[in-house]
Design a protein around this nucleic acid. Structure first.
Lengths: 134, 134
DNA sequence: CATAAACGAGACTAATTTAGTCCTAATTAA
DNA sequence: TTAATTAGGACTAAATTAGTCTCGTTTATG
């Protein structure tokens, strides 16, 4: 029922990049600031890069920066980049998984909940997540 | 991010008992009808019994029946009986888990989402889940 | 152009959780 | 008394999570 630690790390990581707009930042800086094992974070950043959430730069002075505006990146974006589709019950993704799906009266509820979850998670963008004022 | 198979089985199991109101039903019948490994189901029913969702009867003619009305049992009730508290991120249950929790801007979002989840899941009772008419 | 500082990719491993099984009680209707 | 049923605990196998490690590629810079 929970996101994995990997996903939590990914979110912290994006948060750090949001907090340092424009700069190209090394894995090591993020790892230290956000308390994430460096080599694990390096894997996570690869996934974020493939999902086009961050862009990477190799070689000296390399590192990562956001490839979108914070308001274009939501919790859903990041979670899906790491874990794939979100859902409470697997059957809401693929009916064939369940031997009783056609007769199951709970199935439509899982589908509806999946919709709510997605919608809620996508409403929280990283713009909102770092609002300094207030 | 998902409920476990055990929890899914538990829900099917409660569903079966709701569909057979009043009767005392053996593990084996539920296992066969709902396609659940019998000895695993037996463990699950123990949890449901401890959570006072079903009552058990030992000895010949023994079995299980619901110990509440279907409208008093929600998806949340059953999920919590099997998995414990629901949450998307562990930090919403216990701040101390996270090394950065006090400064974390995402934390309040997880807490809010946990509230939403609980509310969504508790709105779906087993009364609603088997409505035959429509 | 050599080199050191970065990321990229894949194989590997350890720990934890999930998904069960199995065996020995304890109960109880008949 | 016995056969049918649940209770409980120990055990196991498979899958997932949470990493590590090594080697290769890229690139700024002296």
């Amino acid at each position: 029922m929970q996101i994995t630690r990997e996903t939590d790390y990914a979110i912290r990581c994006v948060l750090y990049l949001v907090e340092n707009p424009g700069k190209v930042i090394m894995v090591d800086s993020i790892a230290q600031d956000k308390d994430i094992p460096k080599s694990f974070l390096s894997k996570i950043l690869q996934k974020l890069t493939r999902a086009d959430i961050v862009s990477s730069f190799r070689g000296m002075k390399g590192g990562f920066k956001l490839s979108k505006n914070p308001d274009q990146i939501s919790l859903l974006t990041v979670i899906e980049a790491i874990e794939g589709p979100v859902t409470i019950n697997r059957c809401a993704l693929d009916e064939n998984i369940c031997s009783l799906s056609n007769s199951c009266t709970v199935h439509p509820v899982w589908v509806a909940l999946r919709g709510k979850l997605e919608s809620w998670l996508s409403q929280h963008t990283f713009e909102g997540l770092t609002a300094k004022d207030k």
